[in-house]
């Protein structure tokens, strides 16, 4: 039952694919950003998962505890979250500007307007 035991990774794969699908399939620019976030979140989960060591506790040194989880992935993901937030902010800012310029945030409508101009 090893495959079931790795259910964290199944979640990662599911989230990743779902996010990816949203980015590709949706015309709405905001929804694309949401998809991108889901996609990135799956990676966060992945990192956290392999930082976990079975039987380990939080990496705070204390009496009688010998096994700790690896703290490094958490730190890395903290950075990655910051990057993700920055990306989202920038993406949304762009969407606002696009809305001002085109009056819509639907990709197909923008495309039509570009063709016309």
């Amino acid at each position: 039952m090893a495959a079931v035991g790795l259910y964290n990774y199944w979640i990662v794969v599911f989230l990743m694919m779902a996010g990816f699908y949203i980015v590709i399939a949706h015309d709405n620019l905001v929804k694309k950003i949401v998809g991108l976030n889901v996609f990135q979140a799956s990676v966060f989960v992945m990192y956290i998962t392999f930082g976990k060591i079975q039987g380990g506790t939080a990496p705070i040194i204390a009496e009688g505890i010998t096994t700790y989880s690896n703290p490094l992935p958490h730190v890395l993901i903290l950075t990655a979250i910051v990057v993700g937030v920055a990306t989202t902010a920038l993406g949304l800012a762009l969407v606002v500007r696009i809305n001002e310029a085109y009056g819509t945030i639907e990709e197909d409508e923008i495309h039509v307007q570009d063709e016309e101009s």
Partner: peptide, 9 residues
Amino acid sequence: LTAAYQYLV
């Protein structure tokens, strides 16, 4: 803007 957005994604 759309080019930047596309690049961003």
